[in-house]
Design a protein around this nucleic acid. Structure first.
Lengths: 236, 236
DNA sequence: CAATGTGAACTCGTTCACAGCT
DNA sequence: AGCTGTGAACGAGTTCACATTG
């Protein structure tokens, strides 16, 4: 299917760095585009793609302009072409080998989540420190003891890690991952990880998200009850 | 013991809205402060708290200044006091009743995650559409059929929902949640949800995060030739 | 003519640097 | 003396609006 000129190899993109805010939206665009590929949609104007992605059309156009300038004036964008372009920019042409460190509830859920296997990410190792969990099979993977972390990372050629361990041990395991040469870490631990500058960490934190929601919810309910401002003072 | 000196009751709530970027950091500050409370730390200067939260001290001070102006010049901030202040601003004084919609792998992991129960969030209902799952117990909750969604939300007094269902049905369930009066939704579904303006949605998307990591990882590996030499330095 | 691509205006977020308190 | 609180400078991100192009 990849019948597009120059796919995964470098040199294609402009030297410009993509601004982080823009980069963070590309996966959303990619999903929208791929959804359109299912139906046989050939072209899409920025207005429509932007709506599907939940952004304004000017922003979408500016974002895409960082990757180069394709799209046909008066017509729109070629769905397949832009999809490929984003995929290759994101490095989805290659398989990323992911290790999951921490096979507790969240780790196990991740290991079984097939959603991303299909998108260029393969889970190749699973670690835990709990003897009762080590050796059990989850999905089609056997849980390794965290003692063998370095050896297994090497053996499996892991180049990305998901950290789903309790906050108390997250930093220490993060350090070991970094020492073993992992430079991309997705952390679910509710702590701020300290890493050297060449290592990329992204954090997913449900607790934080719920607290932000609580802030808005509280404001909303203060407005509701008709009586106006209420102190609503309750210590925890 | 939970009494604090002033807190001019009328003046506590600044009319000012908290800027979103600032709001998003408050949970991190709160965690750092609560960790300090464990040790008996009374006061902390902005420099130190900022380091624990991974931000610059000027930013921390500005963020805290949105909540009011406490902190003692020449000394620092009272750990307990600021912790309380943030908690109450975030609405953590009250119990939030959370329903989890979708009891697949991620939903089950969330239901068992006790980490947030302790922080003012209680899971009060769990839904799924799969007959084989409905009726089973997860943690101390029985999975309800999604058909009874509206009734159960009402019965349990749910005021927040976590949406952990496949993307294909997320929008439709989101609509039902909104129709049932839920105004705060944390979504794990990899789709852009359309909601009316009074509803707050936050999204957690591992796929997106991995793709962003892949972008950086790809850039990094383009820089260095494929030989075995890797920096592998330690974190601080 | 319809829709892109983009400079310019504007808004929001971060950092600086120092006045003002304790 | 030391540290907060904040106005002002700076920078990033978003939106506007329009010249440009197929």
């Amino acid at each position: 299917m990849p019948d597009f000129p120059e796919t995964a190899s470098g040199a294609e993109g402009p030297g410009r760095e993509i601004p982080p805010a823009s980069l963070a939206r590309l996966p959303t665009y990619l999903r929208a585009l791929n959804a359109m590929l299912a139906d046989p949609v050939e072209r899409v104007p920025s207005e429509e793609l932007a709506e599907a992605a939940g952004v304004k059309s000017a922003m979408l156009r500016k974002d895409l302009s960082y990757l180069g300038s394709f799209g046909t004036r008066g017509v729109g964008y070629d769905v397949r072409f832009v999809s490929h372009k984003i995929s290759s920019l994101l490095g989805l042409g290659q398989e990323w080998r992911v290790a999951i460190v921490g096979a507790g509830n969240p780790g196990r859920a991740l290991a079984r989540y097939t959603g991303f296997t299909s998108r260029g990410f393969e889970v190749v190792a699973l670690f835990d420190a709990d003897e009762r969990i080590v050796g059990t099979e989850i999905g089609w993977l056997k849980v390794s003891h965290v003692d063998s972390l370095e050896a297994e990372l090497e053996r499996t050629g892991t180049n990305m890690a998901v950290l789903s361990v309790p906050g108390a041990v997250a930093q220490q395991l993060c350090d070991r991952l970094v020492a073993a040469g992992v430079t991309s870490i997705l952390s679910f631990a509710p702590v701020v990880l300290q890493v050297p500058p060449h290592v990329q960490v992204r954090k997913v934190d449900m607790g934080t998200e719920l607290q932000i929601l609580a802030y808005h919810a509280q404001r909303a309910q203060e407005g509701e009850p008709g009586s106006g401002a209420r102190p609503a003072r309750q210590a925890r």
